[in-house]
Design a protein around this nucleic acid. Structure first.
Lengths: 216, 216
DNA sequence: TGTAATGTTTACCAACCGGTCAAATTATCA
DNA sequence: TGATAATTTGACCGGTTGGTAAACATTACA
């Protein structure tokens, strides 16, 4: 009997694992470049190197593929924020959070663009994830930052907007890569741009959050 | 005789001006939400309140509409950067640039998302604009910032990445609005979030760019 | 007012979209 | 090996896509 993928409860075969892997890899490539509506199943099938019906044997709908991709990626995407340690030194925690986020923008630009596309176009598919787990995690870390500020270890500031600004500045190098390259020009757009960015951002945030007189 | 819009060289009639205005307004609404490939001509026609063939009488193709929209919006979008004044006070120039960019994110979120979608999806339609006029403008202002730093008026830093970070942090509130609202929650996501953001960003950038010992 | 240019609509098209189906092929394992 | 289950394929479907043709309506202007 032919059972569609979603209905199977037994453990997956070797072929299933391999194919699903190839499909999600191809889906990431296509969705991250065109968004959900702009992507086509044919295109994903072509990138994955298989026929469309074959692809739809593993994921019954385009939406199912997208959902599987999002949930798989979202988890690892939030890892850097989870590592944010309340017991650590504030300055070095913020510094290494920036560095980790920037490394992810460099090493996983497609994942970043996948979310950017999703949020940009209304985030209807991940709204619950945003309002639930994401908000909870940010609330927790915001409390940590607020405590540091209260203890005088960093300047007083709105912790939510601090987190937003770290997200935006780092992900900018993945999401707006084309623009960054165009503006920097050939000579300065090499791989060194990530180190330049890291140096600048560390300076900006560390200096910007330093405690100073009259900043209360 | 019926001449397609693009072939007419005479000055436009009143009806042409009105309709093209309505069309571009509708196109902005739809393109900014779904990107080029995700948007449909039917949808734009519906928002504009006219039939699809009627719309295609004014813009012969979907691409022509998109092109017209981009070139029209790009110009005003760069205005804040053009106002950046080499003769002004560095700190207040940077401060008011941030404020103007943030105001645009608040007042023209669709324009911001239009570009975000475009750049995110490869920017094939505006690559020339980015490498030409945009790069030239940024180069010019980067030189100004570099001169300020050299004169000791602000901390030494990479001017390009400074500009990138101002772009990303401010546009974040337009492009990722859904996420910002989700994370802030109901009570803190009101219109006041723009003032909170302005306060935070000014603090971050002004403090972050302050000249300090050992920062050479 | 008449008429030529401009503007609008209905009906339509070929290509493409996400998805189905049944038949054919391949892998699994008793 | 044989039979059963898992996988793959080509042909196809109804709906949507961007765009066209031509008839019809309206406007501008001599």
């Amino acid at each position: 009997m032919v059972l569609p993928r979603a209905a199977r409860t037994q453990r997956r075969t070797r072929i299933q694992e391999e194919k699903e892997e190839r499909i999600l890899e191809a889906a990431l490539e296509v969705f991250s470049l065109h968004g959900f509506r702009g992507a086509t199943v044919d295109q994903i099938a072509e990138v994955a190197g298989m026929s469309k019906p074959n692809l739809l044997y593993y994921f019954r709908t385009k939406e199912a593929m997208h959902r599987a991709l999002i949930t798989r990626v979202l988890d690892t995407w939030l890892d850097p924020l989870r590592e944010f340690d309340a017991a650590g030194n504030p300055v070095s925690e913020i510094r290494s959070y920036i560095r980790r986020k920037l490394e992810m923008a460099r090493d996983f630009p497609r994942e970043s663009r996948l979310f950017a596309n999703e949020v940009l176009q209304g985030a209807t598919n991940i709204e619950d994830e945003l309002k639930g787990p994401l908000k909870a995690l940010v609330d927790e870390k915001a409390a940590v930052i607020r405590a540091w500020a209260k203890a005088g270890k960093i300047a007083k500031c709105d912790p939510y907007h601090l987190i937003f600004s770290i997200w935006s500045t780092t992900q900018h190098y993945a999401d707006f890569d084309v623009q960054v390259r165009a503006v920097l020009g050939q000579e300065k757009a090499g791989e060194g741009r990530f180190e330049d960015a890291a140096r600048f951002l560390e300076q900006l945030f560390i200096n910007g959050l330093q405690v100073r007189d009259g900043a209360s």
